[in-house]
């Protein structure tokens, strides 16, 4: 981004400097409000109960208690939840991206009737509040013996992420040049070959964006797991953390450590791919 400062293009007057000061003050205050609770959480995760309850919340832990993390991970059973989250997330993201790419390819590249209807069905699905589907979904999964079974979670994640993923992909597919595909048609390539060998590789950047957005949604999802899963061995970190906190009510350090573990994977990804994540969040919202 170009850092051409318009406010500097005129000679600096004291008034202008005060104005700039106020603007920065606002931005810094908002940044502190957004960030400080997380700093506090991290400090909390390294404290003993005496430090939490007896001392100022702004104090640094005397000797950081990394045991809090080890206790949460092993004794609290967070490791099981964590691995469940990892594989549900990966499987659902892969399924969503493949299915959404298929649909978007058919919608933008192929010739058929009812395109408009199908597109509308996906778009309207995006607006339906998930909670209104919860009771019938529970019943459907129950009849199919999929309650307390990870399949119900993966199916739900995949389906409910399809509309937004298709929406983001559509914009990209429409902007993609078609010459190579048209040449491939001339050369007598089959549809599948064109899709897998030409179109899909060209969409790699937008696939990366949608993969990250999907990953964040799935990792943080709560209500499906809380409703459809009852055994500990199938729970995800989001729901597991909630149970953990219920059990270790008074051990704030361990609770803090658990919460940090649950948000760390996304934060690490964000550290490396922040621009892509922001781009995905913007693309997914405004086209709605």
């Amino acid at each position: 981004m170009k850092e051409k400062k318009i406010l500097d293009s005129k000679p600096r007057s004291p008034l202008r400097q005060i104005a700039m000061g106020i603007l920065y003050f606002i931005l810094v205050v908002v940044a502190l409000l957004q960030l400080y609770p997380l700093v506090w959480l991290f400090l909390l995760s390294l404290k003993t109960n005496q430090e939490v309850f007896g001392m100022s919340p702004f104090a640094l832990p005397k000797s950081p208690r990394w045991e809090n993390y080890i206790n949460a991970w092993f004794d609290g059973g967070i490791n099981q939840y964590f691995f469940n989250s990892v594989w549900y997330t990966i499987v659902a993201v892969v399924l969503t991206l493949i299915l959404a790419s298929f649909v978007t390819f058919a919608l933008t590249r192929m010739e058929w009737k009812f395109k408009g209807v199908v597109l509308a069905l996906f778009m309207i699905a995006y607006m339906i509040p998930l909670h209104s589907t919860l009771i019938p979904l529970f019943n459907i999964y129950n009849k199919m013996n999929l309650i307390d079974n990870p399949v119900s979670i993966i199916l739900s994640y995949t389906t409910f992420n399809l509309p937004i993923t298709i929406m983001i992909l559509l914009g990209f597919y429409q902007s993609l040049p078609r010459e190579i595909e048209e040449a491939a048609v001339m050369d007598g390539c089959s549809v599948h070959r064109i899709f897998f060998r030409i179109t899909l590789p060209m969409t790699a950047p937008v696939l990366a964006t949608t993969a990250i957005i999907n990953m964040i949604y799935n990792w943080n999802e709560f209500v499906f797991v809380n409703t459809f899963i009852s055994s500990e061995k199938w729970k995800t970190i989001t729901v597991g953390v909630n149970n953990f906190v219920g059990q270790y009510l008074t051990d704030w350090g361990a609770i803090g450590a658990t919460l940090v573990i649950s948000i760390l994977p996304i934060l690490i990804v964000y550290l490396f791919l922040s621009d892509r994540i922001i781009e995905g969040l913007v693309a997914g919202s405004v086209k709605g």
């Binding site: 609770p37 943080n220 709560f222 922001i278």
Partner: peptide
């Protein structure tokens, strides 16, 4: 980039 960080967390956390 700082402002968006809370949005990356689950509602439960």
């Amino acid at each position: 980039k700082i402002y968006i960080i809370p949005m990356l967390m689950s509602s439960v956390a």
